[in-house]
């Protein structure tokens, strides 16, 4: 009799929290997606009009697709950069491991906005990068295109995400039994062969975790594109924000948000269908 009570005490608070702040808003959003208007009488009119509009408007789809590609690119680059970092920390850093790990984490304690703004200063027309390139004579005129572009969004978000992607990869690498690498060498592997045959597959759960850890929030990202993206660097998240804040069309915004949620679910489903995801997690 004690057992179910204790279980309830354990999962109760997070359950209430998740229900209040995730499930309920999601429900409210779903309700809004069927409302004809955001305020007044229109609130009580049921309609599928916004869904129809969303399906009809290919510009929305293109932006969602492009944002997905950008997010995919950011997650891929972040993972590629984070892997050597995590590998170095796990295998080469020795006793300095914790110190270096802390040094990597410390910048992430500063405000996210601050870090994005820092890139504005670096990439701006009179920014650090332009000044540097000018002084070296590599360019003869400050380039205004560094900032306010899709590349600026990618550079900034990769910078923001690398430490976070490195964490799960580091954890996965740390878990690898070092005697497995000796066994691989013993069985004839050169170091790079040991890496491809043993280290990489065994760290795959960390890679996948880090990748999705970055991909999913990036897909809905709107602050960074707003600050450094300009018109060309706008992402799907900015569109949603516009609907809610500027157009005050909460219904349309809700439909678009739900569409993105669906996109993420489809993405995850496809990945787990590929088998590797669930199989690797069995380890």
């Amino acid at each position: 009799m004690e057992h179910p009570k204790r279980l309830l005490a354990l999962i109760g608070p997070p359950g209430v929290y998740l229900t209040l702040f995730f499930l309920l808003p999601l429900g409210i959003m779903a309700v809004f997606s069927f409302r004809a208007g955001t305020i007044g009488e229109a609130r009580n009119v049921f309609t599928l009009e916004h869904y129809r509009q969303f399906i009809a408007n290919t510009a929305y789809h293109r932006l969602l697709w492009r944002s997905s590609l950008i997010a995919f690119g950011i997650a891929s680059i972040s993972t590629l950069l984070a892997y050597p970092l995590a590998y170095f920390l796990a295998f080469q850093a020795g006793e300095r491991k914790l110190t270096l790990m802390t040094l990597i984490i410390i910048p992430t304690w500063t405000s996210y906005l601050l870090r994005v703004f820092a890139w504005k200063l670096i990439l701006g027309t009179n920014g650090l990068l332009n000044t540097f390139l000018l002084s070296l004579g590599i360019i003869d005129r400050a380039s205004p295109i560094l900032l306010y572009s899709r590349n600026a969004v990618m550079v900034t978000l990769v910078y923001v995400w690398v430490p976070f992607v490195a964490l799960p990869i580091f954890a996965a690498l740390e878990r690898i039994d070092r005697s497995l690498l000796e066994a691989a060498a013993d069985l004839g592997c050169k170091p790079w062969q040991s890496f491809l045959r043993v280290t990489l597959p065994l760290s795959a759960p960390g890679i996948i975790a880090g990748f999705f850890f970055c991909l999913i929030p990036t897909l809905g990202e709107y602050v960074t594109p707003l600050l450094v993206g300009g018109g060309q660097g706008a992402m799907y998240g900015n569109l949603i924000q516009d609907q809610f804040v500027r157009a005050l069309n909460w219904s349309m915004g809700s439909v678009m948000s739900l569409a993105m949620l669906l996109a993420v679910i489809v993405l995850l489903a496809l990945f787990s269908r590929m088998g590797s995801f669930s199989k690797l997690l069995e380890l």
Partner: peptide, 18 residues
């Protein structure tokens, strides 16, 4: 080690889990 004509049976077996 990879070029030595020896093989090892490790104490914890060190079998590749994947």
């Amino acid at each position: 080690p990879n070029l030595r004509p020896v093989n090892t049976v490790f104490q914890n077996y060190a079998l590749f889990p994947h």
